[in-house]
Computed example of a mutant assay.
Amino acid sequence: MIDALNDFLAVAVCGSFSQVAKKQGVAVSSVTRKIDWLEAEVGSRLFHRSSRRVVLTDAGEQFIPRARNILTELAEAKEAISSANADPRGLLSVTAPAVFGRRHIMPVIANFLRRYPDVEVELHLSDQVIDLVEQRIDVAVRIGLLPDSDLHAVTLAPLNLITCASPSYLERAGKPEAPGDLLHHDCITTMATPAAWVGTWSYEGLNRGHPFPARGCLRTDDKEGMLQGALAGLGIVQLPSWLVFEDIQAGRLISLFGDVPQSPQRVRPAIHAVRLPGRSHEVKAKLFIAQLQQAVGAPAYWDPLPVAGSSSI
C-alpha cells in the first residue's frame, strides 16, 4: 500500500511511469503493477495512459490529497509508536496568547528543549484562537472560558483579576474605597471585550452584578499597553494576576478592594492547556503539558498567596 501510494504520487508529479522506474532503479512493469493494484483497490482509473503521456483522471486528481494524507498519518503513527518507548524527538507545535506566551511559556519551552534535545518547538504567539486541526497545533494555551469541544483540557490555574493602580496615580487622584468610587476615577480599559474577559470590572452589589461601566483617558486592545499605562500613572486598571504580580510585589502597583468580591459566575474562566487526543505527537504534547503544570505550580507562582484586590472568576 505505502509503495503504491508513493509511486502514484511520483507518477502524478512527473507524468511518466518510466521516469519513476528509472529513479527507483526498477523495471517499468514494477511501477505499473503497483498502480494497477491501487486502481483496483480504489475502484477507479487514476491515470489516462497512452504511448506518449500519462495524465491524471478526475478521480486521480481527487485522490492526490487523500493519498498524501494517508502517507502523513502513517508516518505520524509510526513516530507515535516509536516515541512511546524512546525519548521524544521531532517537531512540537505550541500556541499561546502573545503576552502570556512571552512571559510564562517561553521559560518552560527553554527548559523543555534542554531536557529533550531531540525535540524542536514551533511557537505561535497570537491572541486569536487558532484551530488546532487546521494549523496542526499540538498544544494550545488558552485563557478564559472553554467551549465544548473534543479537545483534551488541563487546567493550569484559575484566572485571577486584580484591580490596581500606581502609587503616583493614587497620590494624585486619591484611593477609591469601594468599586462605586471608580465612577470618579480614570480607568484604563480595553477597546473591546474579548470572550476571555467576560465578567471583568464587575463587582458584587454594584450595578446589579452587570459589567461596570469603567471609563478613562486610555483605551487599548493590548494588555501590555494597559499595564504600561497603569505604571505611568494614567489610571486604575484591572488585569490578570499573571501579568501584574511582579509589579505588585515590587510596589510599583497597589491592589484595591481586597474585601469586595467580583460578581460570581457559574463557570469560572481559567488558564488551560489543550491538545487534540489521538494525535501522533501526543507523547510530546503530554510531556510538555506536564512540564507546564510543574512550572506553574499549585497555586500558580503568580498567585502564591491570596492577594488583596484579587478574585478568582
Rank of each mutant, 00 (worst) to 15 (best):
D3T: 15
D7C: 11
V13D: 13
S16V: 00
Q24Y: 09
V26S: 06
V26F: 04
A27S: 14
S29L: 15
R45Y: 07
F47D: 05
F47M: 03
E61K: 12
I64A: 03
I64K: 09
R66D: 12
N69I: 07
E76L: 11
K78Q: 10
K78D: 11
A80K: 12
S82N: 09
S83C: 07
S83P: 07
P88R: 02
R89M: 14
V94M: 00
R102S: 13
I105C: 01
M106Y: 11
V108C: 03
I109E: 03
A110E: 15
V119K: 00
V121E: 05
G144A: 00
L146Q: 12
T155V: 13
L156F: 01
L161W: 12
I162N: 07
P167F: 02
E171K: 14
L182E: 03
A192G: 11
T193C: 12
G199R: 01
W201M: 08
L206M: 10
R208I: 09
H210E: 13
L218I: 15
R219G: 12
R219Q: 12
D222W: 09
A230S: 09
I236P: 10
V237D: 06
S241I: 09
L253R: 05
D259A: 13
V260T: 13
P264Q: 01
A270Q: 13
A273H: 04
V274A: 10
V274G: 07
R279M: 12
R279E: 12
K284G: 04
L287T: 01
F288Q: 07
L292A: 04
G297R: 12
A298Q: 14
Y301I: 07
P306L: 01
G309I: 04
S311P: 06
S312V: 15
